[in-house]
Amino acid sequence: RHRTTFTSLQLEELEKVFQKTHYPDVYVREQLALRTELTEARVQVWFQNRRAKWRK
């Protein structure tokens, strides 16, 4: 699998949602996936990684 490189616009969208909730439900993730043109799975993994980073 290749590494997904996020654009600054995608990161902006993702971070905006992360500020509101660290655990977006499937509906929120789907909406975010559509807005960022990423798959829902990529969005889910981004949140997992972002939460790990936040905990440190």
Score class of each variant (00 low, 15 high):
34 L>D: 09
39 T>L: 03
27 Y>E: 11
26 V>G: 10
19 Q>L: 08
33 A>K: 07
28 V>R: 04
33 A>N: 01
28 V>W: 05
30 E>K: 12
42 R>V: 15
20 K>V: 12
1 R>S: 10
2 H>I: 15
44 Q>R: 10
47 F>A: 00
45 V>G: 12
42 R>E: 15
37 E>P: 02
12 E>A: 12
46 W>S: 02
52 A>Q: 10
46 W>E: 00
52 A>T: 09
27 Y>V: 12
19 Q>D: 09
5 T>D: 15
33 A>Y: 06
51 R>V: 06
32 L>A: 04
30 E>Y: 07
45 V>K: 11
12 E>V: 09
14 L>Q: 00
8 S>T: 12
29 R>V: 15
32 L>I: 12
41 A>W: 06
3 R>P: 12
22 H>Y: 02
7 T>Y: 00
37 E>K: 14
46 W>Q: 00
23 Y>G: 03
14 L>R: 00
53 K>P: 02
9 L>F: 13
32 L>N: 02
35 R>N: 04
35 R>C: 06
40 E>Q: 08
1 R>D: 06
13 E>C: 05
33 A>T: 04
10 Q>Y: 00
13 E>K: 03
13 E>F: 01
11 L>G: 05
16 K>D: 02
42 R>Q: 15
18 F>N: 00
42 R>P: 02
32 L>K: 01
37 E>H: 08
15 E>A: 02
46 W>Y: 02
9 L>H: 13
56 K>S: 15
40 E>C: 07
49 N>M: 09
48 Q>K: 13
36 T>R: 02
56 K>V: 09
21 T>V: 06
49 N>K: 05
37 E>I: 03
38 L>Y: 00
46 W>K: 01
18 F>W: 12
28 V>I: 09
40 E>Y: 04
20 K>L: 08
52 A>K: 11
26 V>I: 12
56 K>M: 01
55 R>K: 06
55 R>Q: 13
38 L>D: 05
4 T>L: 10
24 P>L: 01
29 R>G: 02
7 T>G: 06
55 R>V: 09
52 A>G: 07
7 T>V: 04
45 V>A: 13
54 W>L: 14
45 V>W: 13
23 Y>Q: 03
13 E>W: 02
53 K>Y: 09
24 P>K: 00
51 R>H: 01
46 W>V: 00
42 R>I: 14
16 K>R: 12
20 K>I: 14
8 S>F: 09
54 W>S: 13
10 Q>D: 06
13 E>Y: 09
36 T>E: 02
4 T>E: 13
25 D>F: 00
41 A>Q: 13
24 P>N: 00
21 T>Y: 04
2 H>L: 06
2 H>N: 15
41 A>H: 09
33 A>Q: 03
18 F>R: 01
4 T>F: 13
43 V>D: 00
41 A>L: 08
52 A>I: 10
48 Q>R: 10
11 L>H: 13
31 Q>E: 09
15 E>R: 02
43 V>A: 03
33 A>E: 05
44 Q>A: 13
1 R>M: 14
14 L>F: 01
49 N>V: 07
5 T>S: 14
37 E>D: 14
55 R>A: 14
1 R>F: 15
10 Q>R: 03
21 T>N: 07
19 Q>F: 08
24 P>D: 00
32 L>Q: 04
6 F>L: 14
2 H>D: 15
16 K>Q: 07
30 E>C: 06
37 E>S: 13
50 R>Y: 03
39 T>H: 03
55 R>M: 09
38 L>W: 05
9 L>M: 10
13 E>P: 01
44 Q>H: 08
52 A>E: 14
2 H>E: 15
21 T>K: 02
24 P>W: 00
40 E>N: 05
34 L>A: 13
48 Q>A: 11
17 V>I: 09
24 P>R: 01
31 Q>T: 08
14 L>W: 02
10 Q>V: 06
35 R>Q: 07
19 Q>H: 13
51 R>Y: 01
19 Q>T: 09
2 H>R: 11
23 Y>C: 09
47 F>P: 03
34 L>R: 14
24 P>G: 02
52 A>W: 07
36 T>W: 04
34 L>H: 06
48 Q>N: 10
25 D>K: 03
28 V>N: 13
17 V>W: 04
11 L>R: 08
49 N>Q: 15
15 E>S: 02
10 Q>E: 05
31 Q>R: 10
23 Y>I: 00
42 R>T: 15
41 A>S: 11
36 T>H: 09
31 Q>I: 03
3 R>K: 15
42 R>Y: 09
21 T>F: 04
30 E>I: 08
1 R>Q: 05
48 Q>H: 09
51 R>Q: 04
41 A>N: 07
39 T>Q: 06
12 E>F: 07
53 K>D: 15
7 T>I: 01
5 T>I: 09
6 F>I: 13
53 K>M: 12
12 E>H: 14
18 F>C: 00
53 K>N: 13
6 F>S: 03
33 A>D: 01
47 F>Q: 00
24 P>Y: 00
8 S>C: 10
37 E>N: 13
8 S>W: 07
56 K>T: 08
22 H>G: 04
40 E>I: 07
22 H>N: 05
51 R>S: 01
32 L>M: 02
22 H>W: 06
56 K>Q: 07
10 Q>S: 03
17 V>M: 09
43 V>C: 03
30 E>D: 06
32 L>P: 00
14 L>K: 00
18 F>V: 04
55 R>S: 11
52 A>P: 01
13 E>G: 02
37 E>L: 06
23 Y>T: 02
42 R>G: 10
12 E>K: 09
39 T>A: 07
41 A>P: 11
26 V>A: 13
1 R>A: 04
56 K>C: 15
14 L>Y: 00
43 V>S: 01
49 N>C: 08
49 N>I: 10
7 T>C: 04
25 D>W: 03
9 L>P: 10
31 Q>S: 11
32 L>E: 00
30 E>F: 05
3 R>I: 10
6 F>V: 10
25 D>Q: 02
16 K>F: 05
43 V>T: 01
27 Y>D: 12
30 E>G: 08
25 D>G: 06
6 F>P: 06
10 Q>I: 05
11 L>N: 07
28 V>L: 11
3 R>T: 15
39 T>P: 08
24 P>F: 00
39 T>D: 13
1 R>T: 10
31 Q>H: 13
33 A>P: 03
17 V>G: 03
45 V>I: 14
1 R>C: 09
12 E>D: 11
25 D>L: 02
22 H>R: 10
28 V>C: 13
34 L>G: 11
28 V>Q: 14
1 R>Y: 10
19 Q>W: 04
15 E>V: 03
1 R>G: 14
53 K>T: 12
47 F>V: 02
2 H>A: 08
39 T>S: 13
9 L>T: 13
45 V>Y: 12
19 Q>R: 08
20 K>Y: 06
49 N>P: 02
36 T>A: 08
27 Y>K: 13
34 L>W: 06
33 A>L: 04
1 R>K: 14
50 R>S: 04
6 F>H: 03
42 R>C: 11
39 T>F: 00
10 Q>A: 09
16 K>T: 08
42 R>N: 14
13 E>I: 09
3 R>G: 14
20 K>A: 08
2 H>W: 04
25 D>R: 00
51 R>L: 04
29 R>I: 15
15 E>N: 03
29 R>E: 04
28 V>D: 10
22 H>Q: 12
53 K>G: 12
53 K>V: 10
47 F>H: 03
31 Q>L: 08
13 E>A: 08
41 A>F: 05
7 T>L: 02
24 P>C: 00
38 L>F: 01
55 R>T: 06
50 R>L: 01
40 E>R: 04
4 T>P: 10
16 K>I: 07
52 A>M: 12
30 E>S: 12
18 F>K: 00
39 T>N: 06
43 V>Y: 03
5 T>F: 03
26 V>Y: 10
13 E>T: 05
4 T>Y: 14
51 R>I: 03
34 L>Y: 08
15 E>L: 00
48 Q>P: 02
27 Y>L: 13
20 K>P: 02
35 R>G: 04
43 V>R: 00
51 R>F: 02
15 E>G: 01
